[in-house]
Amino acid sequence: MVTTTTPLEEELRRLAGSVPDPELPVLTLEELGVLRSVRLRGEDAVEVELTPTYTACPALEAMSLDIERVLRDHGMREVTVRTVLSPAWSTQDITDEGRRKLREFGIAPPRTRTQSGPVPVPLGPTRTLTGPQDPPRTEPDPVRCPHCGSPDTELLSRFSSTACKALRRCLSCREPFDHFKEV
């Protein structure tokens, strides 16, 4: 589909895209990849489409209000923020600059591979199983510690401070850190 954007729409998109994420303020909405479109619906009316990272992302309402404020300050009288689910957001939508900023902020960025969803991790020993097979599984694309860069890290919990992150620990520098999990 070919859509033409006017210079004003480009300007409004740049403004909306520069709004920081309320929970990860180092990232802008553009870098997070959640801003789908900005379209004029009249001289001073604009419609913005946002997609949530997770269905229940509580930051969505704050994002909508922030976008509305920024665009109203730029002369828009009517700002409508719509939430769209399809196509579903993926961590592949985070820009390279976004990944760099996440790492700098102390959060391991999601890996850029095609597979998504939980990564099978062998359990420690249970009653009848001795634990991970020998030799230890070598991951082709390990989650690196955002502090020291070591690939030697372990999963503490699949769920962390927000829905989009998992909690890990570095086995080299011993620091715990958040990992933006792949979806």
């Binding site: 269905t55 689910l85 399809s86 196509p87 579903a88 957001w89 998504s116 969803g117 769920f159 999990k181």
Partner: peptide, 14 residues
């Protein structure tokens, strides 16, 4: 329900 399901199926995998 396809748009929601496509999103939620990733969550329910976890």
């Amino acid at each position: 329900f396809a748009p929601l399901a496509a999103k939620a199926v990733k969550e329910t995998a976890y």
